[in-house]
């Protein structure tokens, strides 16, 4: 590792020590979770601090986590909901963003202002109105209740619009001459051209769906609809009690897909976060 200016060995050492320390501090809860997931119940509450257990209890904990609750079902729900939401979000946001970025029509700026306002409203504020709305529609405790509230993402519209704006007009003109309809331009030209933005958004969207606890807690009560985040809470209440080993094993399993996905697509991920931060 050598940057543009070569640091003195001491400075380099200091820098790495600082980074390492901060990283450890941030990772501590996570490491502790993994550590607890392989400890026996007795050892988990010992005053002694050790990352590696005296007796390896991981098999029992993970077995219990996997058998006592339908963890696989929770995960499948999570995947289905996250990707259904993502598909709808892109389906809605891409044409909206195209219209806001490239078409000229009266009221466009006002509409975009509304999108920006939508960006500012936290999801929690909408919890109660959405609950009542879905109750009236009779959709509570269904997949629809988990998916539909997120299908229109102001953030996606905003992000895509910024990206679409940077696509040269000539490209759209060429497409119109080549015989593409406006919708075909969106799906055949704009979306592929804005792939980095789409991927960035997809990553952020899937993570926030996967980790979201607030809305599923309100929207569903049947066990077979629960996403993983809610499943863990449910697990703690119903099964585990003070039995933290299996609970932490379940939590580890729930976080694992994200961590693995992150490690696999680290570069894309960082691209995505910087993109959505800068644009």
């Amino acid at each position: 590792m050598s940057g543009h200016h070569s640091l003195s060995p001491f400075a380099a050492l200091g820098r790495h020590a600082t980074l390492l320390g901060t990283a450890l501090f941030m990772l501590m809860p996570f490491i502790w979770m993994v550590s607890l997931s392989i400890k026996s119940p007795g050892e988990a509450f010992q005053a002694r601090f050790a990352l590696w257990p005296e007796t390896f209890y991981g098999v029992e904990n993970f077995a219990k986590a996997l058998t006592s609750v339908p963890l696989a079902r929770f995960m499948a729900n999570g995947v289905f909901v996250a990707f259904a939401v993502l598909a709808l979000q892109i389906l809605v946001a891409a044409p909206c963003a195209y219209a806001l970025a490239k078409l000229r029509f009266p009221g466009r700026d006002a509409l975009f202002a509304l999108v920006l306002i939508g960006l500012l409203i936290p999801q929690e504020v909408l919890g109660l109105p959405l609950f009542i709305l879905f109750h009236l529609m009779g959709l509570l405790d269904t997949y629809a209740a988990l998916i539909l509230p997120f299908s229109v993402s102001p953030f996606a519209i905003f992000l895509f619009r910024q990206f679409f704006k940077s696509v040269p007009d000539d490209l759209i003109h060429a497409a119109r001459l080549d015989g593409l309809s406006e919708l075909a331009i969106v799906w055949r030209i704009m979306v592929p051209a804005a792939m980095p933005a789409i991927i960035a958004f997809a990553i952020l969207s899937v993570i926030s769906r996967w980790n979201n606890l607030f809305w599923p807690m309100i929207a569903v009560s049947s066990e077979e609809l629960m996403p993983p985040s809610l499943g863990i809470v449910f697990f703690r209440d119903e099964e585990a009690g003070n039995d933290y080993g299996p609970l932490m094993a379940a939590a580890t399993l729930v976080v694992a897909p994200l961590v693995i996905a992150f490690l696999a697509a680290q570069k894309r991920f960082i691209e995505g976060v910087t993109l959505s931060g800068l644009k």
Binding site: P168, D170, L171, H173, A174, A175, L177, I189, P192, A193, M195
Partner: peptide
């Protein structure tokens, strides 16, 4: 009508 653009306007992903 066919047109060749100043910037060529080729579709970058194709």
């Amino acid at each position: 009508i066919a047109m060749v653009f100043q910037s060529y306007a080729l579709y970058p992903h194709m």
